[in-house]
């Protein structure tokens, strides 16, 4: 574990924009990644499957374009963003809301494993002494740090009062562009993001290439030639996961007619069959 003082070589310049830059910045992993181009992707812990997919897709696209994905390693959107970046072989930085030792001692299971993977290729950072426990105010301070680290900030899903909105406000204050993923009216998890857009504090994301363009990167996704029914299945699954019967209904087909094509998409990894038996797009 290293402590970067604000006058050290490795200390990320971006943080100096903050009113109260972290001093020192505690770090586990590679200090070099902090000076690379980065995007902050944040959102609520109680995400919807739609939010999970969009967070993952955005992170994957940025990571493939060589841009570091910064988030807060909370459950929900944060974890989905980190996972998406790592899956694409990219680099991710997690800014945690407690001391690093205290955080690592607390996170076991899936999030513990995710923290390990982030440290192996990127970095875990914290502005709090290693043994500092997590408190409400530490999260709020952390949220601001995330905003400073990214060139732009993307809020995927946020209900009213979400910590992700603190990140958005801070990014706005720092003059960083804020993007928000518009959500369905009436969905609790999208009240915050929709408000950001309505009040002109964030731009609406209409597609993944659009935000990539904004950072001067281009999407390098290969378009796979797919038979029309495969494309229709992916399209039907875009808004939300569906059980096979509902999917067939949306496409106007019988479930049996879809089986083979859906299985192919599952095998190729474009669709996942969730633990509850529903199909979801990745």
């Amino acid at each position: 574990m290293k402590a970067l003082s604000s006058d050290s070589e490795d200390y990320p310049r971006a943080l100096l924009d903050l009113r109260d830059p972290p001093h020192p910045l505690w770090l586990e992993g590679d200090a070099g990644v902090l000076s690379r181009r980065a995007v902050s992707i944040v959102g609520t812990r109680r995400m919807t499957p739609y939010g999970a997919r969009v967070a993952r897709e955005l992170a994957t696209a940025f990571a493939s374009a060589g841009i570091v994905v910064v988030s807060g390693l909370a459950q929900g959107i944060d974890s989905a963003a980190h996972e998406g970046a790592l899956e694409a072989g990219g680099i991710s930085v997690a800014v945690v809301g407690a001391g690093l030792e205290a955080f690592l001692a607390d996170s076991r299971g899936r999030r513990g494993a995710l923290a390990q993977r982030i440290r192996d290729s990127g970095a875990l950072v914290s502005e709090f002494p290693p043994d500092a426990p997590a408190r409400t105010w530490t999260f709020a301070k952390r949220d601001a740090t995330i905003a400073a680290l990214g060139e732009i900030t993307i809020v995927v899903e946020a209900p009213a009062g979400s910590g992700a909105l603190i990140t958005a406000d801070e990014a706005h204050r720092l003059g960083r562009t804020v993007y928000a993923v518009p959500g369905p009216l009436g969905a609790r998890t999208s009240v915050g993001t929709n408000t950001l857009i309505a009040e002109g504090r964030a731009r609406a994301i209409t597609s993944v290439p659009m935000v990539l363009d904004a950072m001067g990167a281009s999407a390098t996704t290969l378009r796979v030639d797919r038979d029309p029914i495969g494309a229709r299945i992916l399209e039907a699954l875009a808004p939300a996961p569906a059980d096979p019967d509902a999917l067939a209904r949306r496409l106007g087909l019988r479930p049996a007619q879809l089986t083979t094509e859906v299985a192919r998409l599952v095998v190729s990894g474009e669709v996942v069959c969730g633990a509850d038996g529903r199909l979801a797009r990745r």
């Binding site: 049996a256 089986t259 083979t260 859906v262 299985a263 069959c273 633990a275 038996g277």
Partner: peptide
């Protein structure tokens, strides 16, 4: 048939 295996794969949920 392929569809039998496809159905089995889907119902296994992996």
């Amino acid at each position: 048939a392929t569809e039998d295996v496809a159905l089995a794969l889907l119902l296994r949920g992996e």
